[in-house]
């Protein structure tokens, strides 16, 4: 990552539209966003407000129609797809609402997936996997397949996979959306610990005000615009 002055994510004038048939849907309109390093930011908003789209733009999964997205000093909106994939592998950890683990792989193998892209040896990869699973408290479930784990455990494996490469930024899309309250709280505890104890910058999209409260900062997205206050 290039040099940056404390602001890890800087989005300027970002717009994103989608076509649905002949109709153009304006999801994000001239949006600016700064996320300081170490921030634990929650993004709330009604369905279809563009939360996931914004998360995808910050994570380099999609490109804005206009504007720029800079993460850690790198202009990711103008990167080629191959370079962008490489950049994601090194700097971004994704946590998905439905965990998105590969059902044919064990917990350890799932966590190892992003590490396969690194030049680490097999032994080093194994150590990284063990560390990541220990952080999420699943060191005893390494050989279990996703179907053998509870929802909360699967999400913890998802988080272990996201942090396995020690990325700069964690992007979580409704990480508790598919969990009961108790499991959801455990996941939020984990994310809070990653932010406070490990200094991770986290952006979390959520519908749940209870989850948003655990973040250090909340932003609301409505009609393509960001506000600090919850819109009426």
């Amino acid at each position: 990552m290039s040099e940056f002055n404390g602001t890890l994510v800087k989005a300027r004038g970002v717009s994103k539209n989608f076509k649905r048939g002949s109709e153009t849907i304006h999801v994000l309109a001239d949006l600016d966003l700064d996320i300081p390093a170490g921030d634990f930011l929650s993004l709330m908003g009604p369905s279809g407000s563009g939360k996931t789209t914004l998360l995808n733009l910050i994570g380099g999964l999609d490109r804005p129609d206009t504007g720029s997205v800079e993460v850690g000093g790198d202009r990711i909106d103008s990167m080629g797809s191959r370079k962008l994939a490489n950049w994601r592998a090194r700097h971004i950890g994704f946590v998905f609402q439905f965990y998105n683990l590969l059902p044919v792989l064990t917990a350890a193998r799932n966590v190892e997936l992003p590490l396969l892209l690194t030049p680490l040896s097999k032994k080093e990869r194994r150590q990284q996997v063990e560390t990541a699973l220990k952080i999420v408290g699943l060191e005893h479930r390494t050989k279990h397949y996703p179907r053998q784990l509870s929802g909360g455990e699967q999400q913890r494996v998802g988080i272990a996979r996201a942090i396995a490469t020690d990325p700069t930024l964690l992007l979580c899309d409704e990480p508790t959306g598919d969990l009961d309250r108790k499991s959801g709280d455990e996941i939020l505890d984990l994310l809070e610990a990653l932010s406070k104890d490990h200094g991770k910058t986290i952006v979390m999209v959520t519908h749940d005000p209870h989850a948003a409260l655990r973040a250090s900062r909340n932003l609301y997205l409505d009609a393509g615009k960001l506000t600090a206050e919850r819109p009426e």
């Binding site: 999964l61 994939a85 490489n86 996979r161």
Partner: peptide, 16 residues
């Protein structure tokens, strides 16, 4: 398709 999406999200390139 979704799993391929996940692989790409975590850094697997199109060629990978």
């Amino acid at each position: 398709i979704e799993e391929i999406g996940v692989l790409k999200a975590i850094g697997y390139s199109h060629r990978h």
